[in-house]
Design a protein around this nucleic acid. Structure first.
Lengths: 295, 295
DNA sequence: AACTCTTACGTCCAACGTAAATATT
DNA sequence: AATATTTACGTTGGACGTAAGAGTT
């Protein structure tokens, strides 16, 4: 079955005679005959019957024509969709993101620009709570967060998954333990995020669920400050694996094996419920999905 | 855009490398390259990007792939539908029909048999009321009627239109009147159907609406008896134009011009609400629609 | 070095148009 | 007789595969 055959089929259906149909699609009458014949031979059933000096559909032809119509519509729509994407040569999108994205957005922007060089992406990196507030205040169109949100006010699309791990510098004694006891854990200094951060909430939840009361905490609102603190043996941290992806490869950081960890969090793009997704937004969402899938 | 290009696109999407994709659809690697290149050239946008030693979709590729998936599914479904029709080499369908169909079913059956020689159609010609009763009694699967029906109990599909006309023999004096007066009309003998017939109901309605009281009526339950009576100058009749289609062409019968006439009635195929339409039924409905369209 | 993709090039098939024959009105 | 469709046949373009070259890991 071939596109040209379907084209001939539609033309004959529309114009009723071979000669008119052939003229309409700029081929000769014999070519029309051959296209219809080969289609009928392929399907092994007559699609047209002679009726006076007009050709009309058989039952099989009628059934088939419904599919052909739908196929052609999809074909047209696909070209339209592609053209819309090609039209994305300008425009901008303001995106709020919680802190784990610090270590990925540079490559996201770089990758996105390869496909859409004229589009400007602005990233506002804060924490989950602030990103949601910025969404309400119309300071951003989209928020990328790794936590839940109010489904009454927002709609969201899951674009990937983030893993929270316990990270420690490789030369810390705790990094070499196979099984971590509660006593060893209690000795540690916990480097944690500020309230309002989803990562902080996950830490608090874990402590509650395990009846664990950390004695020694170091609170830092900047993820980069936490990264440097962990690298310099100041303590251990429950944090997104994205932050230490390079260091884990380098073996400078080790993942500590603690129960109920790692925690996997879905990463979502959140937007106002009444936000109408334009082509640019759709393109960004598709891009973000494939970006995180390859991570 | 070509079917083979889409085939190559789907294969590369599925297998990730040109070599595997080419092998999967039984073409050489260079042929694969050419197909993808020509598709990208046609759409004027890259659909794949190299990622490590695998090819993954760009945003445009992702958008396009959704359409391609749908197009291929439709393609498969269309072949399946055609195969189901080809499988219609046996089976039977019992069809009730009100009387106007007397003069069409012979050619309907003949035409239907050309496409589906193995299928047996049984026609039961009665009047509208009886046909509906036969439907309730499961004596027939479908009823072809030209009147309304109980929408709570039945479902229906309009397949065409029937025209009720006033017919008189050409050599009757009334046939030569341009404008018919009420006095002239009152002199006529009205050849009408029995109660229960929708044609009879239409006649009664017309009389009521026009405050007309026919003095001279001849009731006949067989349409063929009415036809012969009209042909032999026994009177005039309000009747489906199908009955006299030959005679109108021959000029043996004339259509009398009376106000509010002709009456057009939709012809429907009616079936039980819980009747599940199998392939044969669907084929018959499509056939019937095209049959009446060409009438 | 091994693997994968692209380019180059000669081959071949399939779709086409012209022209003639056949069918239909 | 005129119009429409099919058959016949020679031509051509484009899709293919093989082989060689270029790019990646």
């Amino acid at each position: 079955m071939d596109y040209k055959q379907l084209e001939a089929f539609e033309a004959l259906l529309k114009y009723g005679t071979y000669s008119k149909a052939a003229k309409a699609i700029y081929i000769s009458q014999p070519a029309m005959t051959v296209r219809i014949q080969s289609l009928e031979k392929f399907l092994d059933i007559p699609l047209f019957k002679r009726n006076g000096h007009k050709y009309t559909l058989t039952v099989a032809g009628t059934v088939f024509s419904n599919y052909v119509r739908d196929i052609f519509n999809l074909h047209k729509e696909s070209l339209q969709a592609i053209n819309e994407l090609k039209g994305l040569t300008s425009g901008s999108l303001r995106i709020g993101a919680s802190s784990f994205s610090t270590y990925v957005i540079h490559s996201m922007i770089k990758n996105f620009k390869e496909s859409f060089p004229g589009v400007h992406l602005s990233f506002y990196i804060t924490n989950t709570t602030s990103a949601i507030q910025d969404l309400i205040d119309n300071k951003i169109e989209l928020a990328i967060i790794a936590s839940s949100y109010d489904a009454n006010q927002f709609k969201a699309i899951v674009i990937g998954y983030d893993t929270l791990i316990w990270a420690a510098a490789s030369d810390m004694p705790i990094s070499n333990c196979q099984q971590i006891t509660r006593e060893e854990l209690e000795k540690q200094c916990f480097i944690i995020r500020e309230p309002g951060s989803n990562t902080r909430m996950q830490f608090d939840n874990w402590c509650n669920q395990n009846g664990f009361y950390p004695k020694n905490c170091l609170v830092m609102s900047q993820t980069e400050a936490i990264r440097r603190a962990v690298m310099n043996n100041l303590g251990i941290s429950l944090i997104s694996s994205y932050i230490f992806s390079d260091e884990i490869d380098n073996r400078k950081i080790k993942i500590i094996n603690v129960s109920d960890i790692p925690i996997e969090r879905p990463i979502s793009i959140v937007m106002s419920k009444n936000y109408s997704e334009d082509t640019l937004t759709q393109a960004f969402i598709i891009f973000a999905k494939s970006y995180f899938k390859c991570k």
